[in-house]
Simulated assay, not measured.
Amino acid sequence: MAGTAAIVGTDPLTLADLLRVANAPGFDRWQEQVRRTGGCSDPIHLEGMTTTRDAKSGQVLYSYSTQGEPGGRLRVACGNRRASRCPSCAWTYAGDTFHLIRAGLTGDVAKGTPVTVRTHPKVFATLTAPSFGPVHNRPTKGVCRCGTDHPEDSPLLGTALNPGTYDYAGAVLWNNHAGDLWRRFTIYLRREVAARAGLSQKEAAEVCRVSFGKVAEFQKRGAVHFHAIVRLDGPDGPETAPPGWASVALLTDAIQAAANRATVPLPPSGDYP
């Protein structure tokens, strides 16, 4: 057994467990569940039953129980977006996001977005956290401020050059309130668009809709930042044309102004005013 395990690249205990599962009566169904989860590395195990009845007659239309599943459990994908937690689900999410963003840029009738959105003003914006202090990095030209040419997999990348002066509290607060900062940014953006069009917010909403598509990701320094596609549509969304005053220049200026205005007031805490 030890020799066979070495050949297939595993240990005897794991190999024995694999053989046990492969020879179990419910192996084919178990394999189907694994396939349906897309190879999720940490699937959710569900137990229980469900019954659907006709509202009037009470007749059972559908009934299902996990008792007939291998191990009495139904496995479903975890859906985690982080590759460090589940590479398979993260890959699926990234692919879905790509197609949604692409549809918002070029149109996709199959996804309910007309191809006319190609002519709508749109801007790709990156909203990044402020500096909390210098960190180890790999600049395009030259070397890191510490004087070292760090390799791509260096564990120092993103860590503080001077931990004693780095604003760790600010970094934590930024990540904790990043979602609210984005929400406030979208509120201010609609106001800024309306102001540049010489309209009230209500008047602007009657002729123009500001549409968003965004993803959030962590930088090497551990700070969340947003990549967003912002598009100006007509009042009923991508199916309607934006007003004549809507332009890329106007949208760009409004985005910059809204980003500068978006803040989250917090009460003082301890040594942090």
Rank of each mutant, 00 (worst) to 15 (best):
D42L: 13
N162M: 09
V172C: 08
P235C: 03
V21E: 13
L189A: 03
A195S: 12
H227V: 02
L199C: 02
R81L: 10
A6E: 15
E217Y: 10
A125Y: 02
T14R: 15
A223L: 15
Q33L: 06
F212P: 00
A129F: 10
E32N: 11
T113D: 11
G198A: 06
S154K: 04
S63F: 15
L250K: 00
T10N: 08
F124T: 04
G179V: 01
F218P: 00
V172L: 13
T240V: 05
V215Q: 12
R73W: 12
D149E: 14
A169Y: 06
G244S: 15
D271V: 14
L74P: 00
P139R: 11
F98M: 11
R82W: 05
L100F: 08
K111Y: 10
D149A: 15
Y272K: 12
G107R: 06
A262S: 14
D54V: 04
R191H: 13
S247K: 09
A254H: 01
T148S: 10
R209H: 10
G95Y: 08
P114W: 13
H99C: 04
A90G: 04
A171L: 15
R190K: 14
H136R: 07
A241F: 08
V135T: 14
T186C: 11
G79L: 06
W91P: 00
G104L: 09
D54T: 03
F218M: 06
P70H: 04
Y188E: 14
G72C: 09
G9Y: 11
A24H: 08
R184H: 12
S211P: 00
V109Q: 14
G158R: 01
K141P: 00
A241R: 15
C78Y: 02
G39C: 07
N80Y: 05
E203M: 04
P273D: 12
W245T: 00
A22I: 00
H45E: 15
V224L: 14
T186H: 03
R261E: 10
A169V: 10
P25G: 05
C208F: 02
G234T: 01
A171K: 12
K220L: 07
D42M: 10
T66H: 04
R190I: 01
G147F: 04
P242H: 09
T159F: 08
A241S: 13
N260R: 15
G237E: 04
V248T: 14
P25N: 07
N176W: 08
I229Q: 10
R183I: 05
T116Q: 13
S200T: 13
Y62F: 13
P70Q: 03
R29W: 07
A262G: 02
A125P: 00
A262Y: 03
P267H: 07
S88A: 15
V224P: 01
P268Q: 09
V264R: 09
Q59I: 10
R221K: 09
F185L: 12
Y62E: 12
G222K: 07
A77L: 05
G79F: 08
G158D: 03
Y272G: 01
R138G: 01
R85P: 00
L74Y: 05
V172F: 09
G270W: 11
G164L: 13
